[in-house]
């Protein structure tokens, strides 16, 4: 699949770093939110030291339960929420720093599709105007922007003459999400962040939109960051997967590897919680008990230790690190069991 993309003679003039330069590098991103009424200085550690690399042309899936920080992470990448600390490098240029790429330029190249397809469109605007809005803001004339909008509508499978003049309430959920994808693509981004973009859709419509996303990625040479809580969808669409728990990355690796040989006990529990679709093979005992702890006052050491069946004293004493990764094939996990000399009795066995 990736070879087909590499064979294209077309080179994006905006590609400054070349194919080997990652599209996006995040280093130690951190964002805490103050909470009122939860004690002095109480903060939600929404994203707490997240580092990863997004390579050109790949789809990186981000999974985790609600409150793990995946949506805050998406907003940090676009500076919709400004990070407290950490560094963001887009195609070799530091974001928001002198000599780097400014936020407006970043947003021309990175777009986002949100989960709620209705609230992300202006209810008082025909959808073709919503789509044309981006190009107009970026200096296109009204007629030019309208032409772009119609071209994009065709690409997402909606007839412009039929659907362009409609208002959001006149469209079904699947059609609205196609419009949102069109709106994101209208400014010609190189990277798209899909934040639970198919989660609210019915299964039969979800399948249509997933097929569309894959096809658009091929034809427009896009890079995706695909956030979802649905592990089956993430396995299907992603090249690599990043697993988050309470604001931190616990596992990162190629999708096939992570799903076949998960190294972090949390990832294994997530995978074990997937429903089987086979009434003859029901899950008899839940892989985890209880809910995730509050991100306001996360456990010391490893944040997963309060729910982990293998937790030992070392897990309480020290926070495990994710380990070093080099390239697309690296598979790392933040768990003392995967570090040979960590002091955990099962170290090296997992």
């Amino acid at each position: 699949m990736s070879t087909a993309v590499e064979m294209l003679p077309y080179v994006d003039p905006r590609d400054r770093g070349g194919a080997a330069q990652p599209m996006l590098i995040a280093r130690e991103l951190q964002r805490h939110f103050r909470v009122k009424g939860a004690g002095k200085g109480a903060v939600v550690r929404a994203v707490d030291g997240v580092s990863f690399t997004l390579f050109k042309g790949e789809t990186l899936g981000v999974v985790g339960e609600s409150g793990c920080g995946k949506s805050t992470l998406a907003r940090l990448l676009l500076h919709l929420v400004v990070p407290d600390s950490g560094e963001l490098v887009f195609d070799g240029d530091a974001v928001g720093e002198r000599g780097g790429v400014n936020v407006a330029d970043l947003r021309r190249q990175v777009q986002m599709v949100f989960q709620d397809s209705y609230s992300s469109l202006n209810p008082r605007m025909p959808v073709q105007d919503s789509i044309a809005f981006g190009p107009m803001v970026n200096g296109r004339s009204k007629t030019e922007a309208r032409r772009i909008a119609h071209e994009i509508l065709v690409k997402v499978g909606l007839r412009p003459d039929l659907f362009g003049p409609r208002y959001p309430h006149e469209l079904s959920g699947g059609q609205k999400q196609r419009v949102n994808i069109a709106r994101a693509l209208a400014v010609g981004p190189r990277m798209v962040i899909l934040d639970e973009a198919v989660s609210a859709l019915d299964k039969s419509v979800e399948a249509q939109v997933l097929n569309l996303l894959r096809q658009l990625k091929r034809t427009l040479n896009l890079t995706y960051l695909f956030i979802s809580h649905d592990l089956n969808v993430v396995r299907y669409i992603s090249d690599r997967v990043l697993v988050m728990y309470l604001g931190q990355v616990v596992e990162l690796g190629p999708a096939a590897e992570v799903f076949a040989r998960a190294r972090h006990p949390y990832t294994r529990a997530l995978l074990g919680s997937r429903l089987s679709m086979d009434a003859g093979r029901r899950i008899e005992a839940p892989p985890l008990v209880g809910d995730p702890p509050s991100p306001i006052d996360p456990p010391s050491g490893c944040r997963f230790r309060t729910r982990c069946p293998h937790a030992e004293s070392v897990c309480e004493a020290r926070m495990p690190t994710l380990g070093h990764w080099e390239d697309r094939s690296s598979h790392v996990a933040a768990c003392h069991m995967t570090t040979p000399d960590s002091g955990h009795s099962l170290a090296g066995a997992a």
Partner: peptide, 23 residues
């Protein structure tokens, strides 16, 4: 049958999902 086929579950990542057309 269409609902089963379009539910993402262990489909090969390099193939389209057999979605039910229309709405």
């Amino acid at each position: 049958a269409g609902l089963l086929a379009s539910t993402v579950h262990d489909q090969a990542p390099d193939q389209d999902i057999a979605a039910i057309p229309g709405s």
